[in-house]
């Protein structure tokens, strides 16, 4: 599983959805076919950057019943490491990219009595695929969508057109905000909660759910950690004796890959746990959502796709 299969695709359409969000439609090329996928899945898109390839995970938002194309939406992050800017400024119709096979870290729970979906801003994208699935299942569901203003409300009109019976919107510039306590306090047993969006919303909702006694197995969230830009450091590989410099805008994983190594990895967003690596020396700056607080505090393991060093060097058991 260390080298996920790549699917060659062509960009069939690029659509500007809001001043910050573009939607990309991918069609298979070279006779490839797109696998079926389950709602909530993401793909990792590989972009041929100038210095190194960018590889970012994006949720599939198109219908799981549509196999002729996939769609993802990308929010432009001007302060990020460059992947979303690459998608916004350099990817156009006809371009050829590679994507990974879909992987699902944010699946609908098949035994839920009710599905309570909460999105903040661009966190709406995995729900767009899930709404297709929920409609087909004729499930009991509610879609709660919080955004700052209409410029940040991607797909608002589409949702109004197709899911108005289930849709609840919160536009904070108009003074309408989502109150997690009020929403979560009054849900029937067997309700499953799904949250995707900015860290503040995600923590507010999941903390509230736990405080109200929701079982952990009913709380689902997805937040791909964008690897932060940090200060450079040295990573030493204990088994091979190699020493590599990790640039401020690169991750440990990318640095190892640039050096010709092929460490295990999958989601590249600190979610799946595949790249967990034993750290022999050094202070870790954890940025993932996979390791428990206990493990993080032990300073012995890290997810090399998103986490960095506080110290000037890290020694990895690789």
């Amino acid at each position: 599983m260390s080298h996920p299969a790549h699917i060659p695709v062509r960009v069939a359409n690029v659509e500007t959805v809001t001043p910050f969000v573009k939607t990309f439609t991918f069609e298979p090329r070279n006779g490839a076919t797109l696998p079926r996928f389950s709602a909530g899945s993401h793909v990792v898109v590989t972009m041929p950057g100038d210095e190194r390839p960018y590889r970012n995970p994006y949720s599939l938002m198109s219908s799981p019943f549509e196999l002729d194309y996939y769609q993802v939406s990308v929010r432009r992050e001007d302060e990020g490491r460059g992947g979303s800017l690459y998608m916004h400024e350099r990817v156009s119709i006809g371009d050829e990219l590679d994507i990974s096979a879909p992987t699902n870290m944010f699946a609908l729970h098949p035994l839920a009595r009710r599905h309570l979906l909460i999105a903040g801003g661009i966190g709406i994208t995995p729900f767009l695929a899930q709404l297709h699935e929920l409609e087909r299942m004729q499930a009991d569901y509610q879609m709660h969508y919080a955004f700052r203003n209409q410029d940040n409300a991607a797909f608002h009109d589409y949702l109004q057109d197709h899911y108005s019976d289930h849709l609840h919107c919160y536009e904070s510039d108009n003074g309408v905000t989502l109150n997690p306590a009020r929403l979560l306090a009054d849900q029937p047993l067997g309700t499953h909660l799904y949250v995707c969006g900015p860290k503040g919303l995600l923590e507010a909702v999941t903390d509230t759910a736990r405080r109200l006694g929701w079982p952990e197995s009913c709380i689902h969230y997805e937040e791909f950690a964008a690897p932060p830009v940090g200060k450079p450091f040295t990573v030493e590989l204990a088994k091979s004796g190699r020493s590599l410099e990790v640039a401020g805008s690169a991750t440990v994983l990318e640095t190892l890959e640039q050096a010709g190594l092929e460490p295990n990895c999958l989601c590249r967003g600190g979610v799946c746990g595949e790249c967990e690596t034993v750290v022999l020396e050094g202070d870790i700056d954890h940025n993932d959502h996979f390791l428990s607080d206990e493990v993080k505090a032990s300073n012995e393991r890290m997810m090399i796709c998103v986490s960095r060093a506080r110290s000037e060097r890290l020694v990895l058991d690789l």
């Binding site: 599983m1 996920p4 696998p35 992987t103 799946c272 746990g273």
Partner: peptide
């Protein structure tokens, strides 16, 4: 279990 939870479509083991 950890390995299988990340099993990929098209990559059977």
């Amino acid at each position: 279990l950890k390995y299988l939870l990340n099993l990929q479509v098209g990559q059977p083991v």
